[in-house]
Structure formats: C-alpha cells, structure tokens
C-alpha cells in the first residue's frame, strides 16, 4: 500500500471537512507538523475542533489556523503564548476546552487504544471536574475522563521508512505518538524517509499500523525560548 505522498496538499486530499476534529502533535513549537498545518490554512476548511497541547504562536504553528479563523474550538492544556488566541477567546469567537496536560495525553492514548474512559485524581475539586462522574477508589476521589478519537491526526517525526514506521527525536516526541494513535486517519510528516529495513525494529516508536499517509517535509523548527549559557 502506497503511503508516501509528494507533498502536504496531496496528503491532505479528501481527509478534510468542516466541523471535523483534528488532533495535532507537538509541545509548544517543538515537534509540530508545520507543513501540514500550513497546508490546511490553504484549504479553507473551517469550524475545526483542534486537540493539541498548545496553540502555536501568532504567526507559526496552529497560530496560522487561528489567524485565518479556521478553528472554532481548541482542546488544550496551555495557550499562554498566543495573543491572537487570547483576543479571539475573550471576544467569544473561539471556544476553549482546557484539559490538564496528562489528562489530554491519556485521553488520546485511551482513544487510540479503544478505551472509552478512565478515572483520574487530576482535577478533582477544580472546574475541570464539574459535570463529570466522581468515584472513590481506595478512599480517594477520582473523576471520569473519556478517550479522545479524532477524525484526523497530524504528527511530526524525525525518520520514517516507506511502511510508515516512525522514530521521533529527543523532546520533539512529546504528544506525537499518542496523537498518531487517536486519529481515524493519521498523516505523518518527517525530516527523512529512509530505505525500507534501515530503521532498527527495536527502536521504532510508532509502528506503521497507525500511519496512513506520509510526507517528507521542510522544517523551520522555530525555537520559542532561545536560552543559552553566556
């Protein structure tokens, strides 16, 4: 089965529709599928629900889709780096569902693994717990969180083979392996597509079964907080 596409526009063909849910990998600007995000901004698809830990910055990452007002709702844990996000949220144009970071990761993992829900202590006694089932285990109160399944998953990896096996690099792994599992369709963009058999089977992070389409991208890899020793 052919998984390698020539570019991001081709890879996205016939996967997008208005009102769909898209899960996107990355932490801050680290390990984000920047080529696929930019390609979505060209399609005009709208009313998107985007599940991603962060919302990019004003002109890069998911900030591009906020600038074009294609996103109706974000499911995120932290959005503090994006002024346009704040403006759209405070003016009521954009909805936000805050998920604690670990809960968001586990929702994606569970959704991808066919687990409908799980109980966690995270968020008990806070607004996150409002309206959710509470249940005590071993004398401690937990809340029910649901697995998250997305119509489309977009991930960024370091290397892939032609089968779609993926390897990530350092902290650019972050949400990507979980995002890959929770999409009905998963598109991966990578820095390098290596020869079949060139990846070490023991070192593969995302097995090919989760990846449906694959492109080699060009990555700016913008740094959000450049901190160096003087």
């Amino acid at each position: 089965m052919k998984k390698i596409y020539s570019n991001a526009d081709d890879a996205l063909a016939e996967t997008l529709f208005d009102g769909m849910t898209i899960a996107v990998g990355g932490f801050g600007l680290c390990g984000i599928p920047e080529n696929l995000i930019t390609a979505i901004s060209r399609t005009g698809v709208k009313n998107l629900i985007v599940a991603s830990n962060n919302a990019g910055v004003d002109d890069f990452g998911l900030g591009e889709l906020l600038a074009t007002k294609q996103i109706a709702k974000m499911i995120s844990s932290y959005v503090g780096e994006n002024a346009e996000f704040m403006r759209q949220y405070l003016s009521g144009e954009l909805e936000i569902e805050f998920n604690p970071q670990g809960t968001l990761a586990e929702r994606m993992r569970a959704g991808g693994a066919g687990i409908a829900g799980f109980y966690t202590k995270t968020g008990v006694g806070t607004v996150i717990a409002e309206g959710k089932e509470h249940k005590d285990f071993n004398g401690q109160t937990h809340i029910l969180e649901t697995g998250l399944v997305a119509d489309l998953a977009l991930v960024k990896a370091w290397k892939a083979d032609g089968f779609g096996n993926l390897i990530y690099r350092k902290t650019a792994r972050n949400f990507n392996p979980l995002v890959a599992t929770c999409g009905k369709i998963c598109i991966a963009e990578v820095e390098e597509i290596v020869a079949d058999g060139a990846l070490i089977p023991d070192a593969i992070h995302t097995p090919s079964i989760y990846v449906h389409r694959l492109i080699k991208g060009k990555h700016e890899k913008r740094i959000e907080q450049r901190t160096v020793i003087n």
Partner: peptide, 30 residues
C-alpha cells in the same frame, strides 16, 4: 530545537537522560 524543557527553553541532555512521550511522562507523575 528538538530539545526543550516544559517552559519551552532550550536545554541539554545528561548521561542519565531518557526521553519518552507525554503519556509516559504523566504516568510517572500520576
């Protein structure tokens, strides 16, 4: 650019460093 902390600051690794995904990260926290 692939090596940052939770504050999005660039950092370095050590001899003992291990990387993992966000679900594993919060499994050790939770």
């Amino acid at each position: 650019a692939d090596l940052i902390n939770a504050g999005k600051q660039t950092i370095t690794e050590l001899d003992r460093t291990a990387y993992f995904d966000s679900a594993d990260s919060f499994a050790m926290i939770r």
